[in-house]
Amino acid sequence: MEWPTTALEVLSEKPLTVKNPKTWHHTHSYGGWGKFYQGLREKKILATRCTNPECAEKRLWLPPRCECPDCWHPMEWVEAPQTGTVYTFSTVTYPGELFKLPPGTPLISLEIEGVGTKLMSWMKEGKPSFGLPVKAVFNTDNPTHTILDLAWVPA
């Protein structure tokens, strides 16, 4: 048998410190939530609503869930409105690795009529402010198949 031909790069001799390369990918299934991302390709914001008539929570869930956390009943998919208002915002100057947008991208959380949650998203154009009315835009040409395929601009 031969010795291995690939070696770890030595970063320091004292203490001996080496570099372990990692080059593989992770597979990720969105499972039942995949419908949401597929909806974005058709310029639809798909949310879910509990089907249990006895359940007190009548509002939409966005991010969607397949089961209601309050009563564990199945949810149904419903198209959410494509307008909302900015609930809060921040401009991230130093994002982490993997961020697909440039530093300086305004992040927002949204209030949408009839939705009980406050979806986190980003603004593609304009400057965010509290209560600013915004409308949805969709990345349908080269979708990333992530939450970033949905963004907002001033309405």
């Binding site: 969105y30 994002p95 991208t105």
Partner: peptide
């Protein structure tokens, strides 16, 4: 949440 929030900044 890696499905709905991590991507928004990874930070």
């Amino acid at each position: 949440c890696k499905d709905f929030e991590s991507e928004l900044g990874w930070m």
